[in-house]
Each structure stands twice: as C-alpha cells, then as structure tokens.
Computed example of a mutant assay.
Amino acid sequence: MSLDGSLGIRVNGEHRRVMGPLSVAEMLNELGLDPLRVAVERNLEIVPRGTLDSVCVEDGDDFEIVHFVGGG
C-alpha cells in the first residue's frame, strides 16, 4: 500500500491503482462492471461469486476478469 492509501493491482494485464480498502465487488463497481455478469480470477484462483463482497483487494493482486456475453 502506498502512502496515499492506494493499492497497486493488475486487471487483465493492465496496472492500476485503486483506493483501499475495498472488496472485489466494490472494485468491480468502480470499474463499471456488473458482478453478476463477470467471472473473477484473483492470483490464479477463481473467486466464488458468493464471496465477492467479503474478499478484500490487496496490494499486488493480479485479477483476470471475464465478461459473459449473450448471443446466438
């Protein structure tokens, strides 16, 4: 964590700084993503949808976020 309280994370290969503390669900909202329409991997482990509100984002976390797209 930096002196200003921000966390350095990576989202889909892109470095970002976010203000902490925050949960994965809060991070998704800040990114403009609907937690019901994405799958989240944190540090090579899937984050179960039911735990998005309780899992905290930590400095150095690496996220891969996949959007669900409908169509046919």
Results as ranks from 00 to 15, higher is better:
Cys56Thr: 08
Leu28Ser: 05
Val18Cys: 04
Glu14Leu: 12
Val24Pro: 02
Pro48Phe: 03
Phe68Ile: 05
Asn43Cys: 00
Val57Arg: 12
Asp61Tyr: 11
Ser23Glu: 13
Arg42His: 00
Val69Asp: 05
Asp34His: 04
Leu28Asn: 08
Val66Ser: 14
Val57Asn: 10
Leu28Glu: 06
Val69Glu: 02
Val18Phe: 12
Met19Thr: 05
Leu7Arg: 10
Asp59Thr: 01
Pro35Asp: 01
Asn29Glu: 09
His67Leu: 15
Thr51Arg: 15
Val55Asp: 05
Gly20Arg: 11
Val24Cys: 06
Gly50Tyr: 01
Val11Gly: 04
Asn43Tyr: 02
Asp53Cys: 04
Asp53His: 12
Leu28Ala: 06
Arg37Cys: 04
Val57Trp: 03
Ala25Val: 02
Ala25Phe: 02
Arg42Glu: 06
Asp4Asn: 14
Val18Gly: 04
Asn12Val: 10
Asp59Gly: 10
Glu41Asn: 13
Cys56Trp: 05
Arg17Ala: 09
Val18Ser: 04
Ser23Val: 00
Leu3Asn: 13
Leu33Gln: 14
Pro48Lys: 03
Glu58Gly: 14
Ser6Pro: 02
Glu45Cys: 01
Gly32Asp: 01
Asp4Ile: 06
Pro48His: 11
Leu52Tyr: 05
Val57Asp: 01
Arg16Cys: 05
Pro21Thr: 07
Val18Ala: 07
Asp62Phe: 02
Cys56Gln: 12
Gly5Gln: 07
Val47Lys: 08
Glu41Phe: 09
Leu31Ile: 01
Gly32Thr: 05
Glu30Gly: 07
Asp61Thr: 13
Val24Ile: 10
Pro48Trp: 09
Met1Ser: 09
Gly72Lys: 15
Arg16Ile: 05
Val69Arg: 09
Gly5Ala: 00
Met27Gly: 09
Pro48Ala: 08
Arg49Pro: 00
Met19His: 04
Ser6Val: 06
Leu33Phe: 03
Glu26Met: 08
Gly70Cys: 09
Asn12Arg: 06
Pro35Thr: 02
Ala25Ile: 00
Leu28Trp: 07
Asp61Glu: 11
Leu44Arg: 15
Val18Leu: 13
Pro48Asp: 03
Asn29His: 06
Asn12Ser: 09
Leu36Ser: 13
Val57Gly: 01
Asp4Cys: 01
Val11Arg: 08
Val38Ile: 10
Glu58Ala: 14
Val38Gly: 05
Ser54Lys: 07
Leu31Cys: 07
Met27Thr: 11
Glu26Ile: 00
Leu36Thr: 10
Gly8Ser: 13
Val55Tyr: 11
Met1Arg: 14
Val24Ala: 03
Asp62Lys: 14
Arg49Glu: 06
Gly72Trp: 10
Gly32Leu: 05
Ser6Lys: 15
Val69Ser: 09
Ser2Met: 05
Met27Gln: 10
Phe68Val: 11
Gly60Pro: 00
Glu45Arg: 14
Val18Asp: 05
Ala39Gly: 10
Val55Gln: 11
Ser23Asp: 10
Ser23Ile: 13
Glu30Ala: 09
Val47Gly: 03
Glu14Thr: 11
Ile65Asp: 08
Leu28Met: 11
Ser54Leu: 03
Val24Asn: 02
Ser6Arg: 15
Pro35Ser: 06
Glu26Gly: 04
Ile9Ser: 08
Leu33Pro: 01
Val18Arg: 06
Met19Val: 14
Glu58Thr: 03
